[in-house]
Nucleic acid binder design. Structure first.
Lengths: 260, 260
DNA sequence: CAGTGGTCTAGACCACCAA
DNA sequence: TGGTGGTCTAGACCACTGC
């Protein structure tokens, strides 16, 4: 490519903030960043194929191997899916073999994912962010947010009661009807209708006792132990886009986790 | 290496069982398997360095890149740790920056891992495996197992009550004194004293109500909600080596999980 | 300075898929 | 058959560590 084989260009723009980081950034990381930008900008939609490794290598003037390593990392982070012989595709929460990507609750009796859950939307209203919600979603207290409350049932048994808080801006126009009507994961709806792709999440899990209202909605006795799952979901660039508080019945399901 | 550059040898022994799998196994996977065998056989102890990539490449008669890819996967599975400029080291539960590798319980007030937990061993006795324990540990009902019951306290507050079941064979001779005296993670003790390295684990999490005995041991009211964490830990080759049932207080701690 | 892991390239070939 | 991702090699050079 260039006169001397190993004089690759690190004159790109790796540092936005003016902190004089003498950071050394490998080429493939820079390429990864560029692909990430295209992903964010929506150059390729979820489910679509991105350009082939050879094309990207030509575009960025690097070798295929370097593009490959960049894509390897994106694939490891589940932002992209490789399919041998076909191409590399933008990851999506829809059409994914493993039904609900972020839901770790599984029935005790082996299986994997019983059919889709029945959704029962109890509330969907505009309101102002409390201090706590604002902090989680990196908003200001009082900023507009959407709150959704719903119950998910499996095989007719109400199993999950959850509240969702969504920032008002990207989710303007979300209605209870939409939430009730669509098929598949709610995160797939977010992708299609609002262009918001959830990429990773953090959960804080506790055991709590059901209060009277919660007990009634989930069909358990007041004081019954429930799993409290607080989830913060992020889009690209670690921007939080959803706060979710779920209460899970764990009498015939359990939360499954793998440790490495 | 050989006359024609791409005629690499797939005449190794990838299939033990006589099932005629026409599986195609990449060279680097075979190399990974060979390194894994040395790891299991104890050719290099936990914390020690394994041979350099160049040495391994020479030993197996493949290129450095192929060894590299094999080690990449081992590193991704936390079996091995790379340290630039120094070498590649066998992973260990001791001397690990992140204190307890498998414990996801963290204090609510940020921090990370408060000082080491105080251990209080309540029981440590030989007994015969129940049907359920036997099934989990892939033993026969009635086979000898060790059962340990203990309470872990953080800053003086009893927080975790757990029962451990260990197969009698590799853990012969384990005593309450050992468990009480040693420093650092219990899994580090297992590595040093019994040569058993836990490599991964699966957890099933539920919310339960404390019974009278559990409540007394943890200093909570009977019926208080507790997190029930059932963990099955595996050594190499997916061999289960420990069943653990923990009850976690989550009034000032929570179970932290990351989803990708 | 030598040794180790880490990056980058260029080119060959294989496995898989669809037309 | 041609295109795509996947594997393998050989060689050059860089970054980090410790003597």
């Amino acid at each position: 490519m260039a006169p001397s084989p190993s004089s690759f260009d690190s004159s790109a723009l790796p540092d936005a903030a003016g902190a004089g980081t003498p950071a050394f950034s490998p080429l493939y990381q820079q390429i990864k960043g560029l692909i990430l930008q295209s992903l964010e900008a929506g150059e390729w939609k979820p489910g679509e194929a991105i350009p082939s490794e050879i094309e990207l290598a030509a575009r960025f003037r690097v070798s295929q191997g370097t593009v490959r390593k960049a894509i390897d990392e994106l694939a490891a982070e589940n932002l992209v899916v490789r399919r041998q012989g076909k191409g590399t595709f933008v990851a999506t929460h829809a059409e994914r073999h493993t039904r609900y990507r972020f839901l770790r609750l599984v029935p005790d009796s082996g299986g994997g994912g019983e059919g889709a859950a029945q959704r029962n939307i109890l509330e969907c209203r505009r309101q102002r962010a409390s201090a706590e919600v604002a902090r989680s979603l990196q908003l200001r207290t009082g900023d507009p947010v959407l709150q959704v409350r719903r119950v998910l049932s499996f095989a007719g048994v109400p199993t999950i009661l959850e509240d969702l808080w969504l920032p008002g801006h990207p989710f303007k126009g979300l209605t209870a009807e939409q939430l009730a009507a669509h098929q598949g994961p709610t995160y797939a709806l977010f992708e299609v209708e609002f262009g918001v792709r959830m990429v990773r999440a953090e959960e804080k899990i506790r055991a709590v006792a059901a209060d009277v209202q919660q007990a009634a909605l989930l069909g358990v006795a007041p004081g019954a132990p429930l799993l409290s799952v607080e989830r913060l979901s992020y889009t690209y660039n670690d921007v939080p886009m959803e706060l979710r508080r779920g209460l899970y019945r764990t009498d015939s399901h359990h939360y499954r986790n793998e440790l490495n």
